[in-house]
Design a protein around this nucleic acid. Structure first.
Length: 135
DNA sequence: GCCAACGTTGGC
DNA sequence: GCCAACGTTGGC
């Protein structure tokens, strides 16, 4: 099983919005690298939900419940989306500042490519962030 | 195929 | 609001 980090601006779609909806399509991703990452997702993979622009922190865990399928918001047929389900809200959000300052997370793809909206996270990094949220 | 111009993302 | 990073577009 693999781990991921997915960004959303909370004023557009927040973790609480996902909790309210239960399951949602992660649509609107229009970046090639992010698309490759989404295509690699498998049912049961876990992803951190990250609030960009506002908050700038990881706030929850979600599960991939449906693998890549055509993005319903895309008319061209070129782009895919996955479906996710809320799993667990982090007790305490883990801020970007905290992640940047943590030596255990220096290799995180998200920290190296700040504009990438869907990025892989190693199991060690994922576990570490979850531990930080409980500290 | 190269590269300048321009647009978008996202942190600060 | 500014700016860095980076993707895309278009002229040549």
């Amino acid at each position: 099983m693999n781990y991921w980090l997915m960004k959303s601006e909370p004023d557009v779609f927040s973790y609480d919005d996902l909790v309210a909806k239960g399951k949602a399509e992660w649509d609107g991703v229009r970046n090639h690298t992010a698309q490759i990452n989404m295509k690699a997702m498998r049912r049961g993979d876990l992803a951190l939900f990250y609030h960009s622009n506002i908050g700038v922190e990881a706030v929850g865990i979600m599960e991939i419940v449906e693998e890549a399928a055509p993005d319903s918001t895309d008319e061209s047929g070129k782009w895919i989306a996955v479906h996710v389900h809320a799993r667990e809200k982090l007790a305490k959000p883990v801020t970007l500042k905290t992640m940047k300052a943590d030596p255990a997370l220096v290799g995180m793809v998200m920290l190296r490519q700040s504009r990438l909206s869907v990025s892989p996270v190693s199991k060690a990094e994922f576990d570490h962030i979850v531990a930080l949220s409980k500290a």
